[in-house]
């Protein structure tokens, strides 16, 4: 046996190696990839086509208005749903147990998940924006300021959704039940967040209030402010883009989600504890 003595790899280095494993595992599971990426895309194409006509006095079609919000649905799918399922699966199939028994810092595991979520979410955002551009007249913004808004909405949104996904993964009893456990709240929240159903202001007030508690409504609002002309701000519940409040709510969810993760994360499955 040959031995190669080397310095043990650092947390970040191992985390990036984990990221490689996560990406391979994710992209080789064809059904999961298709489902994660295509649910928002299929709904975008179907619902976007159903919404006809233009938003009065703006020259913007309802389909365009809808597409901008669907970027949030896409990212919620690749972060919240996908991460929740993948961690529940890791807990169920022995991945977490094996990693706990290996000389790997716990942080490296989460760095690996961050790599997975970032790559998948960027790809999903590109797909939704691309389809919106092709089919629904979504214009790519020219101003740098709007791209800066995109960057922070994306960053805070992905972080908040991921942390919520990690916390929600503990609700799934097994890998098999995880997709159901993650997708049900996802679909409901997409409706009450003014993403599948627009404009949000046409929903009953209690539903709007429920949707406003979660990050998805604010993420969608942020993306609409990036991709839509300012005339469409009239469609928002508050009649304003509310960038300050979007940032505040998403940041609050990042902190709350982190606390939730730290208090609820389990390395073992329930059957095993």
């Amino acid at each position: 046996m040959t031995t190669s003595i080397h310095r043990p790899a650092g947390t970040l280095e191992l985390g990036l190696a984990r990221g490689g494993v996560e990406l391979k595992t994710f992209f080789r599971q064809k059904e999961a990839v298709v489902f994660t990426f295509s649910l928002p895309v299929v709904l975008l194409v179907i619902l976007g086509t159903l919404f006809s006509g233009e938003v009065v006095g703006t020259g913007i079609t309802v389909g365009t208005l809808f597409t901008a919000g669907m970027i949030a649905a896409g990212i919620a799918s690749t972060s919240f749903v996908n991460l929740g399922i993948s961690i529940a699966t890791d807990r169920d199939d022995g991945t977490l147990k094996r990693l706990r028994g290996a000389p790997m810092p716990a942080a490296s595991y989460f760095v690996g998940k961050v790599v997975l979520v970032l790559v998948a979410s960027l790809a999903e955002a590109a797909i939704v924006v691309g389809i919106g551009w092709l089919l629904f007249d979504l214009a790519l913004p020219a101003e740098l300021g709007r791209w800066i808004t995109f960057a922070w909405v994306f960053g805070l949104g992905v972080t908040a959704c991921s942390l919520l996904g990690i916390a929600a993964s503990s609700l799934a009893r097994s890998a098999r039940s995880a997709p159901a456990v993650m997708n049900l709240p996802y679909l409901v929240l997409m409706f009450v967040s003014g993403i599948y159903f627009i404009p949000l202001s046409s929903l009953p007030q209690p539903l709007i209030q429920i949707g406003s508690l979660f990050p998805f409504k604010w993420m969608a609002q942020g993306f609409r402010s990036v991709f839509l002309p300012d005339a469409l701000v009239e469609q928002e519940v508050a009649g304003a883009w509310e960038h300050g409040r979007v940032a505040l709510v998403l940041a609050a969810w990042c902190i709350g989600g982190l606390v939730l993760c730290l208090t609820t994360f389990r390395w073992r499955s329930r059957r095993d504890s």
Partner: peptide
Amino acid sequence: ARYYPAARD
């Protein structure tokens, strides 16, 4: 093997 300082080949 990457996790260990003196891993086997």
